[in-house]
């Protein structure tokens, strides 16, 4: 069964644009991305969008549908009323390239700044051993498909462009949490890094990141709040501080924290010391793939390559 439906789609580029109306045929069982493809095949052949897997796993087709950040391939048309106009706009937080395609380089820059996984230097890759119970918390964050909906909806940068320098965003807070909770990660300064360099203190726990996550990762409850509590351990809890002095626990090297954001090309200390890295090491394939991912997207729905490289932590 098919019917004509009203769509309003933002068309334009960095110089300006506006919402344009389209009447388009919609069939039963379709998602918003199907309708956009039909528009490209009929009324708007030059409409730019970004997509890849159509299965909610590549994170490419992020856009705002009726004002809500969503994956267009996972937004069923049946969720709208029969006479409801569907408004589709690009992500607001990032610079627009054209139509529904935005430049998400901000996220790749923050990924490069984040210190990489640092396993024990005396354990070779392939010899990593850990118990499931120890690694479960980190595995939740590995579900991230890097659609950047959480980054887009976070009001800290969505409504305050000036905070982009100091704030990495929820995606990289769970990256920090993932590594801090990882049983084989040897860095002990991730809490300090999260607070001092990633801007964890900007987060005011309004949970929008969790609300929009298509992978249903409990970003706030399981990632950001535990990291905030770990920061409290180190910075604001005199009892823990006293205990660490008395029992000589939690002695923390501080040197690498202050240097980690001196330019996106600066490798982390783990990289400099030859430790395995997936985020910033010039010899890995990560940066090149990320640059390509950030640059694609103009024309008739070009694809964005899958890239897991920004989150490589030695296990899947």
């Amino acid at each position: 069964m098919s019917a004509k439906r009203q769509f309003r789609i933002w068309r334009g580029d960095e110089t300006g644009g506006d919402l344009q109306d389209y009447m388009v045929e919609v069939n039963e069982g379709e998602v918003v991305l199907d309708v956009i493809h039909r528009l490209q095949a009929t009324d708007a052949p030059d409409l730019a969008c970004r997509w890849n897997c159509k299965a909610g796993k590549c994170g490419s087709c992020s856009m705002e549908i009726n004002g809500k950040p969503r994956l267009s391939c996972m937004t069923r048309m049946s969720t709208f009323g029969d006479d409801e106009t569907v408004t589709v706009t690009p992500l607001r937080t990032f610079p627009v390239i054209r139509d529904l395609v935005t430049d998400v380089s901000f996220n790749y820059e923050k990924a490069r700044e984040t210190p990489a996984f640092a396993p024990p230097p005396d354990v070779a890759p392939g010899d990593y051993r850990m118990q499931q119970v120890d690694v479960e918390r980190s595995q939740e964050f590995r579900k991230c498909i890097e659609c950047f909906l959480c980054q887009n909806v976070c009001h800290v940068i969505r409504d305050h462009e000036e905070n982009k320098q100091a704030f990495s965003g929820p995606r990289y807070f769970i990256r920090a949490a993932e590594l801090d909770m990882h049983p084989l990660d040897t860095r002990t300064d991730r809490k300090e890094y999260a607070q001092a360099e990633q801007g964890l203190g900007f987060c005011n726990i309004t949970k929008c990141c969790t609300e929009v996550c298509p992978e249903h990762i409990k970003i706030t409850d399981n990632g950001i709040i535990p990291m905030k509590e770990r920061v409290v351990d180190r910075r604001y809890d005199p009892l823990v501080w006293l205990g660490s002095k008395i029992f000589r626990r939690g002695e923390t090297p501080q040197t690498s924290v202050t240097t980690a954001r001196q330019g996106s090309a600066t490798p982390s200390s783990a990289t400099r010391s030859g430790i395995h890295s997936h985020a910033g090491a010039p010899t890995t394939r990560g940066p090149r793939r990320r640059r390509r991912a950030a640059s694609t997207g103009i024309g008739r729905c070009p694809t964005r390559p899958r890239r897991r490289s920004t989150t490589g932590a030695g296990f899947r």
Binding site: W10, G12, E14, T15, G16, G17, D18, L19, E64, N66, G67, K68, E84, T87, T89, P90, R92, T93, F94, P95, V96, I97, R98, T102, D103, S105, R288, R292, A294, S295, T296, G297, I298, G299, P302
Partner: peptide, 24 residues
């Protein structure tokens, strides 16, 4: 590497959307 895609060129403006929110 061959790519036909347009590469981002430095700082760009966000999409000029007049409505403060489009939530319905």
């Amino acid at each position: 590497m061959t790519s036909t895609a347009t590469r981002p060129r430095g700082a760009r403006a966000r999409a000029a959307i007049a409505a403060k929110t489009l939530r319905t």
